[in-house]
C-alpha cells in the first residue's frame, strides 16, 4: 500500500479512536468536572453498559438493529439507576470527600466486576452492529459502522453542549461546578444536582459503551482502559471544558494513529503517551482550562 492511502487509513483510525475517546470521556468530564470526585468505577459503568447491551440485544430476535435500538434505550437507564443508587447510598454519606470517594469507588468497581463475572461470565461476546456496510475504497475496505460512530460522537457532543449552555439544567450544573458554596447560597439544591450529574455521567458512559460494543465486544474487564483514557482526555482538555475534551480526544486519537505509521507499534504507543504527557507538563491547566485550578 502506498504512503498516501496508508496515511489516510491511519487518520481514519485515529478519528475513530478520537470518537470513542470523546464518547467515553463525556460522562467523566461531567462527573469529574462538576463533582470533583475521582470516580474509579466510571469504567465499570461503561462495562456494565456494554454487558447489558449484549444481554438486551440477544434477547431480541430479528434484525440486529432492533436489539441494538432497545439496548441503546434500556442499557443507559439501568446503568443510570445503579449509579444513582450508589450515589445515594455511599457517595453522599461520604460527603463527596475526595479521598474517601476513591476507596468507595474502588469498592464499587470490585462489586460491579464480580457481578458481571458471576452473571455474564468471563467470555468476550460480540454485539452485532445495527447495520453491516463495508465502505470500499480503492486501496482498502472500511467499516461503515465505524464511520457512524464518528457521527454519533459528534451528535452526542453537540447535544451535551446544548444541554450545558442552553438549558436551565445546564446552568445549574455549571453554577455548581464553578462554586459549590455560592450555588448553594443561591438556592441550588447542590445535593440533588450531584445525584443527577453522577447518574447522567454513568448514563453517558453506558451510551458510549452501547455504541462502541459492536466494534469492541463486551467483556467484564473492559472498563479499565476507557477509565484511564477518559481521565487523560478530560485533564488534557482542561477540567470542565467540553471543547477541550473533544480537542484532546482528537489530538490523542490522531497522534496514536499517525505515530504508529512511523514506528514499531509498542514504541509508537510509548511515544504517543509521552507526547501527550508532555503537553500537560508544559500546559498544566490543560489545553482549554483556566490558568488556576
Amino acid at each position: 500500500m502506498g504512503f498516501g492511502p496508508y496515511f489516510l487509513l491511519a487518520s481514519l483510525e485515529g478519528l475513530v479512536t478520537a470518537a470513542v475517546l470523546t464518547l467515553t470521556a463525556l460522562g467523566l468530564s461531567l462527573v469529574f468536572g462538576v463533582m470533583r470526585v475521582v470516580n474509579v468505577a466510571h469504567g465499570e459503568f461503561f462495562m456494565l453498559g456494554a454487558v447489558l447491551a449484549w444481554a438486551i440485544s440477544t434477547a431480541f430476535a430479528g434484525h440486529p438493529s432492533i436489539g441494538f435500538a432497545a439496548a441503546l434505550l434500556v442499557s443507559p437507564l439501568v446503568v443510570g439507576g445503579v449509579a444513582l443508587l450508589a450515589e445515594r447510598l455511599v457517595l453522599r454519606r461520604l460527603n463527596y470527600d475526595p479521598e474517601a470517594t476513591i476507596v468507595a469507588t474502588i469498592g464499587l468497581l470490585y462489586i460491579v466486576q464480580q457481578l458481571a463475572l458471576t452473571f455474564y461470565g468471563p467470555d468476550a461476546r460480540p454485539v452485532q452492529a445495527p447495520f453491516n456496510i463495508r465502505v470500499t475504497l480503492p486501496w482498502f475496505g472500511y467499516s461503515g459502522y465505524k464511520l457512524a460512530v464518528i457521527a454519533a460522537a459528534i451528535v452526542l457532543v453537540i447535544a451535551t453542549w446544548l444541554v450545558l449552555t442552553r438549558t436551565k439544567v445546564g446552568l445549574v450544573m455549571r453554577a455548581t461546578q464553578y462554586d459549590r458554596e455560592t450555588a448553594q447560597a443561591f438556592g441550588i439544591p447542590v445535593d440533588r444536582v450531584y445525584a443527577g450529574v453522577f447518574a447522567l455521567g454513568a448514563m453517558l458512559a453506558a451510551i458510549a459503551a452501547v455504541l462502541v460494543v459492536p466494534i469492541q465486544q463486551a467483556h467484564y474487564l473492559m472498563g479499565r482502559d476507557p477509565l484511564l483514557l477518559s481521565f487523560i482526555v478530560v485533564i488534557i482538555g482542561g477540567l470542565g471544558s467540553l471543547r477541550g475534551t473533544v480537542v484532546a480526544a482528537v489530538l490523542i486519537g490522531l497522534s496514536d494513529g499517525i505515530i504508529s505509521v512511523f514506528f514499531s507499534p509498542t514504541l509508537a504507543k510509548m511515544l504517543a503517551t509521552l507526547l501527550v504527557a508532555l503537553v500537560l507538563v508544559f500546559r498544566p491547566q490543560g489545553l482549554f482550562g483556566a490558568a488556576t485550578r
Binding site: 469529574f32 475521582v38 484511564l228 481521565f231 487523560i232 485533564i235 488534557i236 477540567l239 509498542t266 514504541l267 504507543k269 510509548m270 503517551t273 509521552l274 501527550v276 504527557a277 508532555l278 500537560l280 507538563v281 508544559f282 498544566p284 491547566q285 490543560g286 485550578r293
Partner: peptide, 28 residues
Amino acid sequence: VLALRTTGVAFMIVTMMFSQVFYLATLY
C-alpha cells in the same frame, strides 16, 4: 522535575502516563 510543573489532577494524570510508558517499555 517534569511532573511537578503540574499540581492536583494534572499531576495525577502525568504520573499515570509516565508510568504507562514505563510499563510499555518493560514489554517493548
